[in-house]
Design a protein around this nucleic acid. Structure first.
Length: 682
DNA sequence: TTAGGGTTAG
């Protein structure tokens, strides 16, 4: 009784005073600790039960295995598996199901499958009509507890077809049967089907409990289905589930993923108690809504309240990566090392990705080297990192090394590879890799691969070849594919083809400011001021010119943000002095500085003082960081051509690496050239 | 009138 009210500690004191304890009382205690989330305690209690010489029964195992899967503790799970066999429960479906789920949660798919296969014969008998009839007659083939157990097992192995068969065979389904189906579909990547099943609960007058609602909300979050989500919110309120932390957390997630982060904040603030999931969901929610600084702010506040876990760190590192926050990320890295969870799941990959995004390819490499078990994501992150920093040859040789040790590339691998070829101007290598996708690795190229190929060809000046390539694509091209051609036309000043590409791009993405700017750059470079004026007018009409530039740089852990023509920074005088000095040195070196303005095509002071935010941020970095260190700036928008040109020169003049992460890609400027391989940038 | 279904990252 006390356990049911969540008073585990109180229950323990009663339990401890009991003169005699049978397997029944032990089961209640082990189950109670498990349900209260005190998984380690539940396992400890199970050990004590064993030492006390109590013989476990059929109820003991699902309960203790659930805790093993929840930790997850694979070694303990195996130990319990041995007990299952020793005590003769090796043929109990409910126990075997719990074993399958436990192994699945511990990431041991092989063992899960092995246990499952042992059951297959029995399950096949149920598929057989005669046996099924017999089972029905005996009253257990449609028994809710038994069937729920089967559904869970099938769902944990991703066999939703079988789960559905069992589900439809049932006479009476309880809330758990419905929840199993909803969460099964959601977890196996069919959130739409999950919501279809949820809709049936309404038709069938099923009363959903908190877990049912949370599972349906997860599916809403996945699909961004705010309409269903809001109904579930109302239902939760009417049923009094809002105080249930699981439901409140699922609601946060749903609102954040449906782009209603303010509603998520409202719910979060009303929560009397917040756990690690609530905080992590908010951090991830801010990232999802591109409010990365708030994500970092919440992370700092969280530390005073609850202990972060690996999910928290992964979400926070994503915010650090998006903002180029090197110092904050390093703090997290230190936390990770202290908490000894550095090798947990996806976390090492998140660290590599964050170092890459902050322009620290060397540290990313060091992190890669110390990372124990590398999966395909680890390799892909590193490959993409080398590609982004302009190390084309390294990317390809690294790929060969990867294949040599037996790692099988996936579709993401080829995006990184084609990107590297494109930036390094390696056309024949790019073609070869593109063909090898289907011929050697049976990977069907998707839109991203096609966009990479168009980028590769058009950057190399093979504009007609790129155009023909698009026309021969087996799938219809998206804006990114035409955008790559437009960019190539801009680099090689091919106005006519560029206009054609722009026509398709703007049909598909009529309100994308970046593509409009690209077209402006094409006209500006070709000196077509009349047409440039017309595009600018369209942008004004569409309200695309209001998004003024914003760049920021982190210096000594403090983020300094700059807007276009920003004169508000306390160091603005020094910034202007630095820019002026660079301008003087450019003049001396005779650098061919071109202007955006039609009147003045010669070296112009306007170039250096154009007020674009990234230049202000870079100049600020030059003043406030040690000589020789690299300068990392993050920009919210697309870097304009003029800035790109100037930044190349700055990197040459000051002999420092300048890294600018804009909305499209990473630019690593070094000794007068850029990693993006954009030769047309001047 | 004991178990088994659940939320966060990628």
């Amino acid at each position: 009784m006390l356990v049911r009210f969540g008073e585990t500690w109180h229950a323990w004191s009663v339990f401890a005073k009991m003169p005699e304890r049978d397997v029944f009382s032990w089961n209640i205690m082990v189950g109670g600790y498990g349900k209260a989330g005190l998984l380690e305690d539940a396992l400890d209690l199970y050990h004590r039960m064993m030492w006390a010489g109590v013989r476990p029964d059929v109820y003991t195992f699902p309960c203790v295995l659930r805790s093993c899967g929840g930790v997850p503790d694979w070694r303990m799970g195996r130990e319990v598996h041995a007990h299952v066999l020793r005590f003769g429960f090796g043929e109990e479906v409910d126990v075997l199901n719990a074993l399958v789920t436990m192994y699945a949660k511990c990431g041991d798919a092989v063992a899960a499958r092995k246990v499952f296969d042992g059951l297959q014969l029995f399950l096949n008998m149920l598929q057989d009509e005669e046996m099924n009839g017999l089972a029905v007659k005996m009253g257990f083939a449609t028994d809710a507890a038994f069937c729920n157990s089967l559904i869970q097992m099938y769902a944990s192995l991703g066999m939703m077809g079988q789960a559905r068969t069992v589900f439809s065979r049932m006479d009476t389904r309880d809330a758990m049967s419905w929840t199993d189906m909803i969460s099964g579909y959601e977890k196996n990547g069919f959130p739409d089907k999950a919501l279809e099943v949820y809709a049936l609960t309404e038709v069938n007058n099923v009363s959903p409990d908190g877990i049912t609602i949370a599972s349906a909300l997860a599916a809403c979050a996945c699909l961004g289905r705010l309409d269903v989500g809001v109904k579930l919110h109302e239902l939760s309120e009417s049923k009094g589930f809002m105080g249930y932390i699981l439901v409140a957390n699922a609601l946060l997630e749903m609102y954040a993923k449906s782009k209603h982060i303010d509603k998520a904040i409202e719910i979060f603030r009303c929560m009397p108690e917040k756990d690690v999931v609530s905080w992590s969901s908010m951090i991830a929610g801010f990232c999802f809504n591109r409010r990365n600084f708030e994500a970092l702010y919440y992370f700092r506040h969280m530390l005073a309240d609850v202990e972060p876990n690996s999910v928290t760190f992964i979400a926070t590192l994503a915010a650090c990566a998006a903002t180029g926050a090197l110092r904050s990320g390093k703090e997290i890295h230190a936390h990770v090392l202290r908490c000894v969870i550095g090798s947990e799941g996806y976390l090492p990959n998140a660290l590599i990705y964050w170092y890459v995004e902050c322009g620290q390819i060397g540290y990313a490499w060091a992190q890669f080297c110390v990372h124990g078990t590398k999966d395909i994501v680890t390799w892909n992150t590193m490959l993409a990192g080398f590609a982004a920093h302009g190390h084309g040859d390294t990317t390809l040789s690294f790929f060969n090394q990867m294949v040599k040790i037996g790692e099988c590339p996936d579709e993401v691998t080829f995006i990184a590879l084609l990107c590297a070829c494109s930036r390094g101007g390696m056309v024949s290598e790019g073609w070869e890799l593109f063909h090898s996708m289907t011929e050697k690795y049976s990977i069907v190229p998707n839109l991203k691969h096609y966009a990479c190929m168009v980028d590769l060809l058009s950057r190399a000046g093979r504009l007609m070849e790129a155009y023909n390539f698009i026309n021969e694509m087996p799938i219809s091209p998206d804006a990114a594919v035409w955008g790559a051609l437009l960019n190539g036309c801009r680099i090689h000043s091919h106005v006519e083809l560029g206009e054609l590409a722009a026509k398709y791009v703007l049909e598909l993405e009529p309100n994308d400011a970046g593509y409009h700017v690209l077209l402006c750059d094409l006209y500006a470079d070709a000196g077509r001021w009349d047409k440039l004026g017309r595009v600018r007018k369209t942008m004004r009409e569409k309200g695309l010119d209001h998004d003024s530039g914003c760049s920021w740089i982190e210096v000594k852990g403090v983020v300094h943000a700059f807007l276009t023509d920003d004169a508000s920074h306390p160091q603005i005088r020094e910034i202007n002095t630095v820019l002026e000095g660079i301008y003087e040195r450019m003049k001396i070196s005779g650098a061919p500085v071109e202007s955006h303005s039609p009147e003045d095509k010669q070296v112009s002071k306007d170039d250096i003082f154009c007020g674009h935010s990234e230049r202000l941020a870079v100049a600020f970095g030059l003043i406030n960081t040690r000589p020789g260190t690299s300068i990392c700036v993050t920009k919210k928008q697309y870097t304009c051509q003029s800035c790109h040109r100037i930044l190349k020169m700055i990197s040459n003049i000051v002999r420092r690496d300048v890294i600018v992460r804009d909305s499209k890609q990473l630019h690593h400027f070094k000794d007068g050239s850029c990693s993006c391989g954009d030769e047309g940038h001047g």
